[in-house]
Simulated scan of single mutants.
Amino acid sequence: MIRQPAVAGSFYPADPKQLSAMISRFLDEVKPVTKAPKAIIVPHAGYIYSGPIAASAYARLKGAAYQINRVVLIGPSHRVGFSGLAISHAGSFATPLGNIELDQENRGKILDLPFVGYLDQAHELEHSLEVQLPFLQQILGSFRLLPIVAGDASAEQVCQVLEKVWDGPETLIVISSDLSHYHSYAEAQKLDKKTTDYIQALQYEKLDYDSACGRVGVGGLLAYARKHHLQVKNVDLRNSGDTAGDKFRVVGYGAYVID
């Protein structure tokens, strides 16, 4: 079974050449950084809005692309309500840039957790994971993917998943999340700065739905970072008013890395 793209042509171009060219433009605008992150937090809106911010984290992977062959991707559910964390029966996920094979080995590692289960409906139309895939394909080329949609779950449960799949430099952890939604430009800047301070301080308990729609995945990464004495660093913090939208009602976007 192949999970087909749900938002190609709306969140990002459906034409492969246009899509690749757009991602390249975003990546080329980022100042080169030699050290590659082990884990990143990136936004998941339409590319014209959040693509430049996501690229601020993805561009840092260029130097490690040769060694990364597994990606664990966690994002929130926007359309289906459920408890726990949802994995997919699919054998691969498709984008305009090609098919990505799913990581059956890592999928098997987390299936023994009581809050992890198959729920294909959660994946079918979910954009929070899908919009990350062309960036990953552009940077990494070939890799195996473990896609996880987070429902009503805790940071501690996500942390348990990460304990099983963190592995070595061959594995990249990607957490998909936007920040504040539909505030004025000035209010969003204030709220997103506060959220960023919490993220960098690993204070995941202070995050709520208004802080970040992907707070479950973000919280899980922060819980793991706190447990293993890792640091999270913000590398970009903007909103839709800075990229392609008006400044009256904006959505906040942040890019964060664990090196």
Rank of each mutant, 00 (worst) to 15 (best):
G91L: 12
L85E: 08
L162G: 08
D152T: 11
Q104V: 14
P114Y: 06
I74P: 03
L111Y: 10
S77E: 01
F135I: 08
G84E: 00
P76F: 01
G108P: 05
V80L: 14
A90Y: 07
K164M: 12
I100G: 01
F143D: 02
L145Y: 03
L133K: 01
L129C: 10
G75K: 02
Q132I: 01
A153M: 09
G75D: 02
P76L: 02
S154Y: 07
D120I: 06
A94Q: 14
L113D: 10
F93H: 08
N106S: 15
E105S: 14
I110L: 10
F93W: 14
T95V: 05
F82N: 05
V149H: 01
A155R: 05
C159V: 13
K109A: 15
R144G: 05
E130D: 12
F82L: 03
I87V: 15
Q137C: 11
L125E: 12
E130G: 04
Q157G: 03
C159W: 09
P76Y: 04
Q157C: 07
V161S: 03
F143C: 05
F115I: 01
A153F: 07
G75T: 02
I74G: 00
G91Q: 13
H89R: 13
T95I: 05
T95D: 00
S142W: 10
A122R: 01
V165M: 09
Q138F: 15
G151D: 04
R70Y: 09
G141W: 07
L97N: 03
L111W: 09
S142H: 14
S92R: 14
V116R: 02
R144M: 07
Q157A: 11
Q121I: 08
V72Q: 03
D152W: 12
L162D: 10
S77K: 04
R70K: 15
L162F: 09
E101F: 12
N69S: 14
R107Y: 00
V165G: 12
I74T: 07
Q138N: 15
P114F: 08
Q137N: 08
Y118N: 10
I74M: 07
L162Q: 06
D167Y: 12
I87G: 03
A153Y: 06
L145G: 04
A90E: 07
A150D: 00
H78Q: 13
F82P: 04
Q137I: 00
L129I: 12
V71W: 02
I148L: 09
L85S: 09
P147F: 02
I100E: 01
W166P: 11
E130R: 02
D152Q: 14
G84C: 08
V71H: 02
R70F: 07
L102V: 15
D167V: 13
G98I: 07
S92P: 04
L111I: 10
A122Q: 03
F93N: 06
D103E: 08
A90W: 05
L97Y: 00
G117P: 02
H123D: 07
I110W: 09
A86W: 03
I148H: 01
V72K: 02
F82S: 07
V165Q: 06
E105N: 15
G84Q: 00
Q137G: 11
W166V: 14
F115M: 09
